[in-house]
């Protein structure tokens, strides 16, 4: 991303938001809707393929003394497996594939975005909100299927006096509805902020000439931090999904 700052910005006008531009690679129009294959879609496909390759190549060997790829695959697997076990419990095993897929997709979306000239699809609210909304609807359906109408007791904390219900229930409903918003905004904001910061600092390094060494040094540190944020946000996104899943399964 850092190196891409100057080249991608285009000439004198260094536009730190240029990197988030979406352009169609393959224009498709179905029934008046623009469903073009964009650079964003391309990087989603790349993220899915890379995740698939790492897991299939890593698991394929299955030897006692693991290869490097196997260590990577097993670490990713056990991270998510532990997360599901700790946060959802045994009932969560059923939903492990869902959570794992989600984790891999977000993680590789974030990490691949760190490659210069690439595109970070998780830096778009449309993408993260679509994911969060899907999670939200899925988990609500899981909860209703497991508990039926009893699921709605989630909106009234156990042990609270009945007189507080008119205030508490709307608050709990709004709190519940705010989950997909906070889930998506958090991921999008983190990725967007980090990448914009990198570009801005990158353009400083270009503009300041010889003194540009200073922002360049800072850039090295922030790039490292960005890698950490990329992994951490994928982790947070997944762990919150687990917590929501826990609520839907156990109702508090």
């Amino acid at each position: 991303m850092a190196a891409a700052a100057d080249g991608h910005g285009g000439g004198g006008g260094l536009d730190p938001l240029h990197q988030f531009e979406i352009y169609p690679i393959l224009s498709i129009n179905i029934g008046g809707y623009d469903v073009s294959f964009t650079n964003s879609s391309l990087w989603m496909v790349i993220a899915a393929v890379v995740a698939y390759l790492i897991i299939s190549r890593g698991v394929g060997a299955g030897s006692l003394v693991p290869t490097r790829m196997q260590v990577v695959a097993e670490t990713l697997y056990s991270t998510v497996a532990n997360m599901v076990r700790d946060n959802v419990g045994d009932a969560g095993k059923k939903y492990f594939p869902f959570v794992f897929t989600l984790f891999m997709f977000v993680l590789f979306g974030n990490l691949l975005g760190m490659i210069p000239y690439s595109f970070t699809f998780t830096s778009h609210l449309a993408v993260t909100f679509a994911m969060a909304a899907t999670i939200f609807v899925t988990i609500t359906i899981i909860g209703i299927m497991r508990h039926g109408l009893h699921f709605f007791s989630l909106f009234f904390p156990a042990g609270a006096p009945l007189a507080t219900a008119p205030i508490l229930i709307p608050i709990e409903i709004i709190s519940y509805l705010s989950r997909p918003v906070s889930l998506s905004v958090r991921l999008f904001a983190n990725m967007m902020v980090g990448h914009t910061l990198l570009k801005v600092l990158g353009s400083f390094a270009v503009m300041m000439g010889a003194a540009g060494i200073l922002p360049l040094g800072l850039l090295v540190g922030i790039t490292a931090l960005e890698f950490l944020v990329a992994a951490l946000q994928a982790y947070v996104f997944t762990i919150l999904t687990c917590i929501y899943l826990h609520d839907a399964i156990h109702l508090h």
């Binding site: 709004i174 709190s175 509805l177 705010s178 989950r179 918003v181 906070s182 905004v185 958090r186 904001a189 983190n190 947070v236």
Partner: peptide, 14 residues
């Protein structure tokens, strides 16, 4: 950031 977003999200939805 997590707490900040949490604070804004509820208010925004309301």
């Amino acid at each position: 950031i997590r707490i900040t977003v949490e604070m804004i999200a509820g208010l925004a939805v309301g």
